[in-house]
Structures are given as structure tokens and as C-alpha cells.
């Protein structure tokens, strides 16, 4: 029993680690889509950021400079999306897809040109990464306080700063979206842009601002992948996480806190999938980890189809706004 409890704690702990990039990206998706811009390009922005973070951190030796560069590149990719969708009124899905495909090609090409390691960056030394922060007294508390002490040591302590930032980003997203004028306008621009336009607020400007915030958040997701959990960039290292974040955002019905729960649930599924590989369970038998990993996608499809409560995306999503003259 004690062993099971300990395993469960470790699973929760890795849930948090797996969920962190999903949380960043899902919040990015919320900002973008709430303003009316479909953001398939979460994946690509994350991938570019992961590469730049690792490459710059390796070059400068500082994870912070790497993070800054990554955020800048991710925002630039977002601006490209905006250039296509807002200024040229291009198809938002196609633009997002283009950025994703571009990212998977560019990161490898530039990676090979810079490092000649088949598209990887060299392994980062500990000093060029965001390392885990041991909270004070972790070991002492674990030894002396039953149950809660272990929770404190295994689950709460030992995460890097980005994990905390991801959790904070949910609260910040909630605050900005629902407690500020800016957030009110941002939500309005995704529902009824002509209302904002007639109030004298620029629809394009609002959407660009949303896209920039989304870029920053996607950048952080990428930074986390290559310089916090990972020690360098690996080809295609996002491996569909951007799409899972998209699913989590939809699952959370475009709201920050429910999206956080969805990220944690999807993260938990992944953490469990890694542990049940080949294990036999009473009654149910062997659980296929491959099918378990597909569960987020299946659940999202089922939810979208309206079988678990209704979902209504922002009303003006995907439609370029044409200002009346």
C-alpha cells in the first residue's frame, strides 16, 4: 500500500511536469482564439522556441538569454500568423499549418548548419538550464512528518521555476481575461468584432496584441521543453504537444481554469501510460499505453460532438474582420 501511494505521488509529480508545456500552450491558445484567431500554430511556435532556447542557451551559457530569444522568435512566428490572417485575411488554419511545417523544417536545417549534429543541439550543461528548485527542509520534512511530508518533498518541492510560472499563468490569464478592460475587449473582439469597431477600438490591434501574448506563452512552453525538462533540442521534440494543448483548450471550453484541469488530466494520462506499459491489472488485464495516449484526442472529439455538455467556441473565430467603410 505504501508503495502504491508512493508510486501514485510520483505519477502526480510527473503529471505536473508533463502538463507544464501544455498549460502554457493552452493559455496561449485561449488568448489567440478568444480574440477570434484560430491557433493551430501552437505546435510550431513551441518547436521554434524550444530550438532557439537551447541554441542560444548553449551559445551564451545563460538559460535566461535563451528564454528571451525563444520568446522573441515565438512572437515573431505569431506576428507572421497575424500578417497572414489579420492583414491579408488569409485562411487561419492554413497559415497555422504553414507555420508548423515551416518550424519542423527550419529547426532542423538551422540546427544542422550551426551544430552539425543531425538537427540536435549539443547537450546543455547544468548551468545553461533551468534547474529544479528544492524547497527548504524538503528532506527534513519528508523524514519527520508522515504522508504530508512525502507529498511536500515529492510533489511540491523539486520543480523548476517554469512549472510555477505555468501555474501562475493560469491565474494571470484568468485575471486579464475576466477582470480587466483589456480582457473584456479581447473577448468581445472574438465574439462580435463589429461592436468593438463601432466603439472606436481597432479590431486588428486587439488581435495583434492577443497574438503577441500567445507568442510569449508558446515561447515559454518551448523554453521549458528544451532547457528545463530536457537538456537540449531534439528534432520534433514537441511531438504533438501543441495539438494536445489545443485539445485541452477546447476541453476547457476556452476558459483558463477548466483548461488547466484538462491539461492536468491529459498530463496524468501520459504519466500513467508511461507506467502501465506491460503491467497486468486485475479484471481489466493489460492496458495498452498506446491507446491510453490516444485518449485525450478521443475525449476531445467526443466533447466537441456535444456528447458531454455543449461547447461553443468564440463566435467570430476564424473569420477575418473586414472593416466597413
Amino acid at each position: 500500500m505504501a508503495d502504491f501511494w508512493f508510486q501514485f505521488l510520483l505519477a502526480l509529480d510527473s503529471t505536473l511536469r508533463v502538463a507544464t508545456p501544455l498549460i502554457f500552450a493552452a493559455m496561449a491558445g485561449i488568448f489567440s482564439e478568444r480574440s477570434g484567431i484560430i491557433d493551430i500554430s501552437l505546435e510550431g511556435k513551441m518547436l521554434m522556441a524550444a530550438f532557439v532556447a537551447a541554441a542560444v542557451a548553449y551559445g551564451t551559457g545563460s538559460p535566461w538569454i535563451g528564454a528571451l530569444a525563444a520568446i522573441i522568435v515565438s512572437v515573431l512566428a505569431g506576428l507572421l500568423h497575424g500578417f497572414a490572417c489579420i492583414i491579408h485575411r488569409g485562411n487561419q488554419v492554413i497559415s497555422g499549418l504553414a507555420i508548423n511545417i515551416l518550424a519542423s523544417g527550419l529547426t532542423v536545417i538551422i540546427g544542422i548548419a550551426l551544430f552539425r549534429q543531425g538537427g540536435q543541439t549539443p547537450t546543455l550543461p547544468k548551468s545553461a538550464r533551468f534547474n529544479s528548485i528544492e524547497l527548504p527542509f524538503a528532506q527534513y520534512v519528508a523524514d519527520n512528518i508522515p504522508i504530508l511530508g512525502v507529498v511536500y518533498k515529492e510533489l511540491i518541492s523539486g520543480h523548476n521555476i517554469l512549472v510555477w510560472l505555468a501555474l501562475a499563468s493560469v491565474g494571470i490569464t484568468y485575471y486579464i481575461l475576466f477582470k480587466t478592460t483589456f480582457g473584456l475587449r479581447l473577448r468581445a473582439v472574438g465574439e462580435k468584432p463589429e461592436a468593438l469597431d463601432s466603439a472606436g477600438i481597432s479590431v486588428s490591434k486587439m488581435r495583434f496584441q492577443a497574438i503577441i501574448i500567445a507568442g510569449i506563452l508558446c515561447g515559454l512552453a518551448g523554453v521549458y521543453l528544451s532547457t528545463a525538462t530536457g537538456a537540449g533540442f531534439v528534432k520534433e521534440m514537441t511531438a504533438g504537444k501543441g495539438y494536445i494543448a489545443l485539445a485541452a483548450m477546447i476541453f476547457g471550453k476556452w476558459r483558463p481554469v477548466p483548461a488547466l484541469y484538462a491539461c492536468l488530466m491529459f498530463g496524468f494520462l501520459e504519466a500513467v501510460a508511461a507506467r502501465v506499459q506491460g503491467a497486468e491489472f486485475p479484471i481489466i488485464g493489460e492496458i495498452s499505453s498506446d491507446l491510453l495516449l490516444a485518449l485525450p484526442y478521443v475525449l476531445t472529439v467526443v466533447l466537441l460532438a456535444g456528447f458531454i455538455g455543449g461547447v461553443s467556441p468564440p463566435r467570430a473565430i476564424g473569420q477575418p474582420y473586414i472593416k466597413e467603410r
Partner: peptide
């Protein structure tokens, strides 16, 4: 320094320019 990932990148550019920025 150039691998077939270059083709992936060109593909992305083509989707960008003949899709999203078609007009």
C-alpha cells in the same frame, strides 16, 4: 548542411505563400 528537411521547409513556405498569403 542541407538535408531533405529543406523540402519540409519549402513545403511550409509554399503552404504559406500559396495558401495563407494567396492574395
Amino acid at each position: 548542411t542541407i538535408t531533405r528537411d529543406m523540402v519540409v521547409m519549402i513545403q511550409g513556405l509554399i503552404i504559406l505563400f500559396s495558401g495563407a498569403l494567396a492574395y
